[in-house]
Computed example of a mutant assay.
Amino acid sequence: MKIYISQLNETKVVLPIIEEYDVGIEAVIFASPFILDDKEKYIKEYKDELGNLCDNIEISLHGPYADLIPGSRDKLISQVANYRFEQAYQVAKDLGAKKIVFHNGYAPNTYYEKEWIRNSANFWKDFMKDKDESIAIHIENVLDEDYKWIKALIDEVNNPNLSVCLDIGHINAYSNLSVREWIDGLGNRIGHFHIHNNDASKDSHLGIINGSIDVLEILNYIDSKLNDVSISLEIIDINELKESMKILNNNNFIKKRNKVK
């Protein structure tokens, strides 16, 4: 199971952790539309910040999501989503990223099921037409109350390079179904996970032991049920992230890194 750190802190704060543990990084900076509009400048700056690690670690990218609705019935809105997603894809290519995570963009009770799935499937079929296999595309649940809509989307698009990014914190905050039920319901449609914790009242992005999810139990369940999946730790507080890394290391989910020269 390949593990990434989702970069919710400045690069200089996260780098010592990346240098200590054999993990990749999930860049979040390019989720910003302002960054994407000057992406060449920020790609260079980001590569400079990573230094030698840039060519020695796996990189994932969190795509843009603010105000973007791939399943919109308004063609102008879906065109904007496509424009931003294409920008992110080019960034991923330039960084040599292995994967991109995009939000599903669905808000409950705003669309009829058939309409949303049809609109979303058409969007993703079109987006994936010219994409090669070098970058995996993962669609993330956010406000989704159950897995049925995202499951139907993946099945309808039916592209081996498109899968689910299952965010367990979002499940805990927004769904009445358990994380295990989501995993069982989606099965091998899952290619990536976002791992963080909360107390089920809101999406808090806490460390793995700082909430009501038994994260270690979930990780062991993932390990027993799914092959060839990766995870990103989406933890805001740097001390909680460090604590989580130690726990994962002690439980043999990650190893210390050989020093990069």
Score class of each variant (00 low, 15 high):
residue 21 Y to D: 09
residue 159 N to I: 10
residue 230 S to W: 00
residue 196 H to A: 11
residue 200 A to K: 02
residue 3 I to W: 06
residue 34 F to P: 08
residue 21 Y to T: 15
residue 125 K to T: 13
residue 163 S to F: 12
residue 71 G to L: 01
residue 242 K to W: 03
residue 174 Y to D: 12
residue 210 N to R: 11
residue 145 E to F: 05
residue 251 N to K: 06
residue 4 Y to G: 03
residue 155 D to K: 13
residue 115 E to S: 08
residue 213 I to V: 06
residue 205 H to G: 10
residue 210 N to D: 12
residue 112 Y to A: 04
residue 133 E to V: 10
residue 119 N to S: 09
residue 172 N to H: 00
residue 244 S to K: 06
residue 174 Y to Q: 10
residue 50 L to N: 02
residue 194 H to W: 13
residue 187 G to M: 10
residue 164 V to F: 15
residue 95 L to R: 06
residue 72 S to E: 00
residue 144 D to A: 10
residue 251 N to C: 05
residue 154 I to Y: 09
residue 69 I to H: 00
residue 245 M to A: 07
residue 170 H to I: 14
residue 46 Y to Q: 03
residue 69 I to W: 00
residue 12 K to Q: 02
residue 186 L to C: 11
residue 242 K to N: 08
residue 123 F to N: 05
residue 149 W to G: 05
residue 203 D to A: 14
residue 167 D to Q: 14
residue 18 I to A: 03
residue 63 G to N: 11
residue 170 H to T: 14
residue 128 M to I: 05
residue 29 I to Y: 03
residue 163 S to W: 12
residue 84 R to M: 11
residue 10 E to L: 06
residue 155 D to P: 06
residue 126 D to Q: 12
residue 6 S to D: 12
residue 246 K to P: 03
residue 71 G to E: 00
residue 114 K to R: 07
residue 204 S to C: 03
residue 197 N to T: 10
residue 150 I to Y: 14
residue 213 I to A: 01
residue 173 A to F: 05
residue 171 I to S: 07
residue 192 H to Q: 10
residue 148 K to F: 09
residue 66 A to I: 06
residue 212 S to T: 04
residue 226 L to T: 10
residue 80 V to E: 01
residue 130 D to A: 07
residue 77 I to G: 00
residue 134 S to N: 12
residue 74 D to G: 02
residue 242 K to C: 07
residue 227 N to I: 09
residue 173 A to C: 11
residue 134 S to V: 04
residue 237 D to Y: 12
residue 23 V to D: 05
residue 61 L to C: 12
residue 15 L to R: 04
residue 223 D to Y: 01
residue 185 G to T: 10
residue 72 S to R: 00
residue 168 I to L: 07
residue 213 I to L: 06
residue 137 I to N: 10
residue 154 I to D: 15
residue 33 P to D: 11
residue 46 Y to D: 03
residue 238 I to S: 12
residue 202 K to A: 07
residue 55 D to H: 13
residue 69 I to A: 01
residue 153 L to N: 08
residue 18 I to Y: 01
residue 103 H to L: 08
residue 53 L to W: 01
residue 141 N to P: 15
residue 205 H to E: 09
residue 57 I to A: 11
residue 146 D to I: 11
residue 235 I to Y: 05
residue 15 L to K: 06
residue 79 Q to H: 02
residue 83 Y to S: 08
residue 93 K to T: 03
residue 6 S to R: 14
residue 27 A to N: 10
residue 12 K to S: 01
residue 121 A to P: 11
residue 43 I to F: 05
residue 254 I to F: 12
residue 206 L to Q: 15
residue 31 A to N: 07
residue 236 I to L: 08
residue 248 L to M: 05
residue 83 Y to V: 04
residue 141 N to F: 15
residue 241 L to E: 07
residue 116 W to D: 02
residue 77 I to A: 06
residue 261 K to W: 01
residue 77 I to S: 04
residue 29 I to F: 04
residue 194 H to R: 13
residue 88 A to P: 04
residue 68 L to G: 00
residue 50 L to S: 00
residue 211 G to T: 06
residue 10 E to S: 10
residue 247 I to K: 05
residue 221 Y to A: 04
